[in-house]
Each structure stands twice: as C-alpha cells, then as structure tokens.
Amino acid sequence: MSMQSLDIQRRSATTTPSPDARQTLEVAKLIDVSKCIGCKACQSACMEWNDLRDEVGSNAGIYDNPRDLSDQSWTVMRFSEVEVQQGKLEWLIRKDGCMHCADPGCLKACPSPGAIVQYSNGIVDFHEENCIGCGYCITGCPFNVPRISQKDNKAYKCTLCSDRVAVGQEPACVKTCPTGAIVFGSKEDMIDHAQERIADLKERGYDNAGLYDPQGVGGTHVMYVLQHADQPELYHGLPKDPHISPMVGLWKGIAKPLMSFGLGLVALAGFFHYIKVGPKEVPEDEETES
C-alpha cells in the first residue's frame, strides 16, 4: 500500500533519501494486557478489514487459534497460564503481531528496494509487489513476526492498518475491541495514557506494572501495558530486551559496505598492476630455445 508515498522516512535497500517532505504525527497503538478478555474480536476485525481468511485449523486443546501468525493471520492472541505468586493463577493474554519498531530489523535486512518502508508516522509496512521472498526480514526481526506465504512467496505482517491511518482512522482492531484494551493515538498520548493505567494497576497490587516500549529497538509503535513488566517473558516469551541481533548488525552494518569496497579494490589493484608492470611474457630467448 503506498497511500503515504510522501511520508516515507526509511525504505529498504535504498541509499538515497526517501520522499520525506511531509512530517506526520508519530502514532502508536497501546495494548493494555490487563484489560484484554481474550475474545479475539481484534483477530476477526483484522481478517475482515484486510480480507484475510486463514485455514480453519484444529483444536489443540488450548485457546490459541490459529496457533501461530501466518500470511493470513497478522495478529493472534497468545494465552499464557502463569503463577507469579504461589497459588494465584493468572491468565495472561497478549495480542501478538508486528511491533512497528522505530529501528526495524526487517527493514534493515531486506535486500529489495522499497519492499519494506517506514512512514514518518512510525508504521512499518511491507510492499509485497517489491518483495522477492528471500526471508531476510524474518532473519532481521527480533519479534519473529513476518511470514512468507506458501502461495505467492511474499512476506506478510500487520500493517497497523496503514491504509486506515492514512485517512485518519484508527486500526480495525482498535475500533472493534469491546473492552477498550486497545487504544490508538499519538505516541506521546499513548505513553501518557499508559502511565495512568500503570498507576491504577499499581494501586491494585501489581507493583511491577509497567509500559513495554523496548528501547533496544528504539521504542515501538505498538506498546503494551503489562502487569508484570519486570518479566515480559511470561507473556508467551515476549523478549525482555529485544534488539537487532549482533549477527544481523554485522551483516547489514559494517560487512556490506566494507566487503563491497574490498571487491572494488581487488578489481582496481588487478587492473593497475597490469598497467604498471605490463604482461608477464616468456622472454624471447627462451621462446626460441626449443
């Protein structure tokens, strides 16, 4: 979807500036896990707005259904049963999907120009028509989000309803959530709103309640209010300190320009060596010897 082609702050595999004339407001979606009842209305709304239909799966004896993100399921509810306090069972339900990282590993890794863009409002979007299906975005993502379709070999993930946001609407999941667990607005407002919720949770005995806006990836444009922000792993393995893997950083950081430069240097060295010393020929006298 390129409805916002004027507002692109970053574009995959592109070394010149992106169309950046307009600055839009930085947005964020805030998911308050403590308010979520696991009804999956957001999953349905996502399917409906984006016209996606995953295969009807089978019941695995747990509530997670579909079992995983896919090219057709851009968000899934993850249910975790935990006992943080002895004898006090808690059902933590996290809406999983793309976090819309400020420093997106997917975009950093993608080799295809313009297959992944980041709008100036912070949304990270895949433009599937430019996708070559290499899977590098999966390699780069610290949250295990992108999925490659078996049908067309293109990568898909949550768009944060970039099409709706572009025309001033909230994402479909936000619109549909019956408990108000998902809210949307400017990133600043969402942080303020989260602080109120966290103060409330702390009053109710959740001393470690907090905001999940991991700075390792520069913050995210999908944030969580967690009851146990000190242990995000409880929420179906949400990483505590996510960052772009050092191996990906090395590969897409220093290695890329250095090795390209190195190859150029080898070519030039070969050429100028020849120009300087000339061809290596068998001396005339040896030539006639036989």
Partner: peptide, 18 residues
C-alpha cells in the same frame, strides 16, 4: 527459502547468512 530455512532456528539462519 522456502524449502530449508524454516527448518532451522533463527540464530542458525542469522549465523549462516553471515
């Protein structure tokens, strides 16, 4: 992709690409 990469752990893939 798509044949073998999904069968390896993400860290294996990151190392392999490097």
């Amino acid at each position: 992709q798509p044949y073998f990469a999904p069968k390896f752990s993400i860290d294996m893939v990151r190392l392999a690409v490097l």
